[in-house]
């Protein structure tokens, strides 16, 4: 793109806030009651984090992989692409995240740690699972527009960042790349739409990046 520095976020905004939030509502309506199922999956992950089993680490990684692949197809490919021509280009990145979760995630230890980034990770995961769905009504929008873990990318990306921060094992940071990139992109979109909750995504990014950069600096 020529003269890219002359472009602002507004130049890439393709849709109105009303169109965007209605798309989320219609996505929820189309999938209901899958939101309950994904919430239960999140609760199960929390249980396995607190009381790990020999098999639970692989199950958590596998569950996340399925959810990311599901989001690539159901949200990006089928839903978001109807108003954003860039969405189909992002879908393969979500599929890549699913692949990485199977490849790397299966070898990690997914459990709540009291040291290091564990508390931060747990906070992010819980906020994505429990608090994020409340953002829509708190912002004056319909509860039908509630964004839930495993159904829309924002809470799923934040939850994944939180889980990866808790996970122990080699190359876990690779599992942060796609969720962080999504959070930054989604922050830009929501910020341009004038949505105050855009800052939640930026906070998640900062909470993830600061400890990682500190660790590398040490």
């Amino acid at each position: 793109m020529s003269e890219w520095w002359t472009y602002s976020a507004e130049d890439f905004l393709l849709f109105s806030p009303r169109t965007y939030w209605r798309m989320i509502e219609r996505h929820n309506e189309a999938l209901w009651p899958a939101q309950l199922l994904t919430f239960l999956l999140g609760a199960a992950i929390l249980l396995w984090l607190i009381r790990p089993r020999p098999w639970s680490h692989r199950v958590i990684a596998g569950t996340l992989a399925v959810l990311w692949a599901w989001l690539a197809w159901s949200f990006l490919w089928e839903r978001y692409a109807t108003i954003n021509w860039a969405a189909p280009y992002v879908a393969p990145l979500f599929a890549l995240q699913a692949f990485l979760l199977l490849l790397i995630g299966g070898r990690l230890r997914w459990e709540v740690g009291r040291a290091g980034q564990g508390p931060v990770g747990l906070t992010l995961f819980l906020s994505a699972l429990v608090l994020h769905p409340l953002v829509a009504p708190l912002m004056g929008r319909s509860l039908r527009g509630a964004e839930t873990f495993g159904i829309t990318p924002d809470p799923t990306a934040i939850a994944t960042i939180g889980l990866v921060l808790m996970a122990a094992g080699r190359r876990s940071w690779l599992l942060l790349v796609v969720p962080l990139a999504w959070c930054i992109g989604s922050w830009a979109t929501l910020y341009t739409l004038g949505a105050p909750e855009s800052w939640l995504l930026l906070v998640a990014v900062l909470l993830a990046i600061i400890p990682v950069t500190r660790r590398h600096a040490d």
Binding site: F15, S16, T19, M23
Partner: peptide, 12 residues
């Protein structure tokens, strides 16, 4: 631009 990009939302 923007106003007509409403996807498959029948109401819009």
């Amino acid at each position: 631009w923007i106003t007509f990009n409403v996807g498959d939302d029948v109401e819009l």
